[in-house]
Amino acid sequence: MAIKNNYIRIEYLVFLCAVSAFGFVTENTYYLQIMTFIGINTLLGLGLNMLMGYTGQVSLGHAAFYGIGAYTTAILSGTYGINPWLSLVCAVAAAVFIAFIVGLPTLRLSGYYLAMGTLGFGMIVNIVIREWAAVTGGASGFVGIPVLEAGPLIFMSGANYYFLVWGIVFAAMIVCRRLLASRTGRALRAIHDGEKTAVAIGINTHLLKLEIFIFAAALGAVAGFLYAHFVLFISPESFGFMFSIKIVTMVVIGGMASVWGALLGATVLTLLPEVLHGFAEYEMIIFGTVLMVVMIFMPQGLTRGIMDMIRTAGRART
């Protein structure tokens, strides 16, 4: 076990070095911007991965918490001039509170019903954002989100924001990993493997599902906060149903039940539209095709698929 733990530490160290190196070396603001978006999407993927990949509870409304995070900070810091860091706390609190209220009845559902329930919730949040124009700016969006500052640091230039986002991503990955290696993590995986059996061995599945739903929502709100203060202008489309599906796709493509899967999935799904700039209209078709191909050839997701390929290649050589 000790050896295994060391490997994991090395993985994280390599990851940290690679991310820092990229941040220091890259001057191109476009690349830094893309990487920042990858980081924000990774946060969303990480949260949903805990809920969907590990606990087996499909949510089709995850973008709602992203939106709640973004709009809460936008309104509080933009309209009311509250310190953005304080509004981060409020954004997370709002997401936690709403996740609690929504999750309490919804998580009694399972399978398709849970998916439908969260889908409905996501749509309601989007409609509220769209229609409550006096506060949210409605369909035309919210303008005037302040830039993040911390003492002499201004988080506007590419590199600063890049490091802020990836620092948070790294912390979130550690939190997820620690959680998974714990009693709680084992219980979550038990729910995934068999919810009835999990109850029969004494796990309060309803409470635990609620906890992890709230955790995912909180990570989503942090991602929303980072997004809002990065782009400084937000509109309802960014938090709609299509984006919820996109987060689900990230988790599935990257590989459910792997912390690295969220990172890989977010990377692929953030880069694809950039690479396929000329084919913007066909974006959904290409996403769909990629999803299908991955599901057919690597049903465990890219992370596991690639690992298996390396292993088989290694075995073939010896």
């Binding site: 714990s182 009693r183 709680t184 084992r186 219980a187 995986r189 038990a190 061995i201 004494g202 796990i203």
Partner: peptide, 9 residues
Amino acid sequence: VGMHVRTQA
């Protein structure tokens, strides 16, 4: 995971 009810963390 079978020890769930006898542990606290």
